[in-house]
């Protein structure tokens, strides 16, 4: 996982000014698919790719980067919260 260039970027990682990757129609279909792939025990974990901070650098992380490994995925409400 190579470091990603850090520039004036949208917080979710897409660089400002880049062309949209897909049309609205495609996005709508994709969103529907995503809603259907809701996580449940005993089923395959939905794959994702997200921008990440890792050991001093900015990179991206993909669930399918860890085949054959146990993974604990932890969501939490926000950085700098109290609990």
């Amino acid at each position: 996982m190579a470091d990603q260039p850090v520039g004036c970027a949208h917080p979710i990682g897409a660089t400002v000014g880049t062309d949209p990757a897909e049309t609205n129609e495609q996005q709508t279909t994709k969103q529907k698919e995503k809603k259907m792939s809701l996580a449940r025990v005993g089923a395959k974990a939905p794959d994702f790719e997200a921008p990440a901070y890792y050991k001093g650098g900015f990179t991206s992380v993909k669930l399918s980067d860890f085949p054959g490994k146990w993974v604990v995925l932890c969501f939490y409400p926000g950085d700098f919260t109290f609990v």
Binding site: A52, F58, V61, W70, V72, C74, F75, G78, D79
Partner: peptide, 22 residues
């Protein structure tokens, strides 16, 4: 967790830049 061979990914709506500062 490492002893058990487990990878961890944490996830929130904060940007990776805020993660660094945190």
């Amino acid at each position: 967790l490492q002893d058990l061979g487990v990878e961890v990914i944490s996830m929130s709506v904060d940007s990776q830049f805020v993660h660094k500062v945190w």
